[in-house]
């Protein structure tokens, strides 16, 4: 049935695509898929130097993790992208969907320099972490005092808090920490979602885009919000006393990883590129521009830089990350519970 319908449209489509000659590469081309973050800096620090080394051309796709994953899924039979940078949980999803291959770490000369948690984050050999970040609470230290994740729900504070929506990358980790604070940390996050739901009238908003938060903080709509460390820098420029909380339950966070697409025709080139990105030199430069916290332990940073990033073995070890399998298996349930308790 579908084929018949498709065939009717096909004639026109084929005629039109024939008019456009496919861009045949005169030189080796490596297609990568990355977050849209700081592309100008990446170009200068990573892409252009690499093109010189390999004598190849880099084509870059940008977007957030889920969108790009949806495109990889659609292009599964004939992959467009050779190497993709996604979140740790999405890497497991991609691996389960058969979109990515094992990373041959013997070809990565810098592999030994990585922090242990970055070497094989999902324990399936399908990904390598290139950066990680802490998630904690940014708050107005003149207005409140945060010692625990549960403090955000205190009656005197709740009406000055923005909480990440469960659909964002920061949502589940923040709920997980709240669960720890409430001593009810089941993987279904039921208790923390209910606790947040009970305060939904007071909580200012459940944010979708962290870009809102700086604006809301500046207008004094909010005094506190759980955020990822990579969005921290703009808060420090607002002229308010804003502090990074060190709650007694600890900090949570996330990790971004590199993967190789299944069926990629440029596997070796992709590995060469990954190795370059993981090198001490490149990781240091990215850190000095406050873009990515390094996962390479040979990177040495000044204290001023380190304070704005998630840096060092101790920090790396202390982050309470949600295991990818838990995230994937429970994601649909979290959203369902959330929509029932908070969305209604």
């Amino acid at each position: 049935m579908n084929k018949v319908i498709l065939a009717s449209g096909a004639a026109l489509m084929l005629a039109m695509s024939a008019a456009q000659t496919p861009a045949l590469a005169q030189e080796k081309t490596l297609t990568i898929s990355v977050y849209a973050l700081a592309q100008d800096e990446y170009k200068q620090i990573v892409y252009e130097p690499f093109q010189k080394i390999c004598g190849c051309k880099l084509v870059v796709e940008t977007g957030n993790s889920v969108e790009r994953l949806a495109k990889m899924e659609a292009n599964k039979a004939n992959p467009v992208v050779d190497m993709a940078v996604i979140s740790m949980a999405d890497a497991l999803a991609a691996s389960r969907a058969g979109l990515i291959d094992k990373v041959d770490t013997s070809k990565l000369s810098n592999f030994g320099k990585l922090y242990d948690i970055a070497k094989d984050p999902n324990g399936d050999g399908m990904s390598v972490g290139y950066t990680f970040y802490a998630t904690s609470i940014a708050y107005r230290s003149d207005k409140m005092k945060i010692d625990s994740w549960a403090d955000l729900l205190k009656p005197e504070y709740a009406s000055h808090v923005a909480w990440p929506n469960v659909t964002t990358n920061q949502g589940p980790p923040a709920l997980y920490m709240l669960g720890l604070a409430l001593a009810k940390d089941t993987p279904d996050l039921k208790a923390p979602i209910e606790a947040v739901g009970a305060k939904k009238g007071e909580i200012v908003t459940f944010y979708e885009k962290s870009s809102q938060l700086v604006q809301l903080m500046q207008q004094e709509e909010i005094w506190a919000a759980p955020i990822g460390r990579f969005t921290w820098a703009p808060f420090t420029k607002l002229g308010f006393p804003i502090a990074w909380a060190m709650p007694k339950e600890g900090q949570t966070g996330g990790m971004n990883v590199m993967t190789v697409t299944k069926g990629s025709k440029n596997r070796d080139l992709a590995l060469q590129f990954m190795d370059f990105w993981l090198s001490t030199e490149v990781q240091t430069k990215l850190a000095e521009k406050l873009i990515d916290s390094p996962s390479n332990k040979d990177v040495k940073l000044s204290e001023a830089i380190a304070n704005n990033l998630t840096y060092g073995e101790e920090t790396a070890k202390s982050l309470k990350l949600i295991p990818s399998a838990v995230a994937l298996d429970n994601r649909a349930g979290w959203i369902k519970t959330w929509n029932e308790k908070v969305g209604q």
């Binding site: 957030n64 994953l69 929506n165 659909t167 908003t205 459940f206 885009k209 994601r331 929509n339 969305g343």
Partner: peptide, 25 residues
């Protein structure tokens, strides 16, 4: 609706976006 309402005030389109982008459903 996503920015001025957030998940406190879901609309069908925000729900649709959740299904596509987050749940892949």
């Amino acid at each position: 609706p996503a920015i001025l309402g957030g998940s406190k005030v879901l609309m069908l389109e925000t729900l649709l976006y959740q299904q596509v982008a987050v749940s892949n459903n």
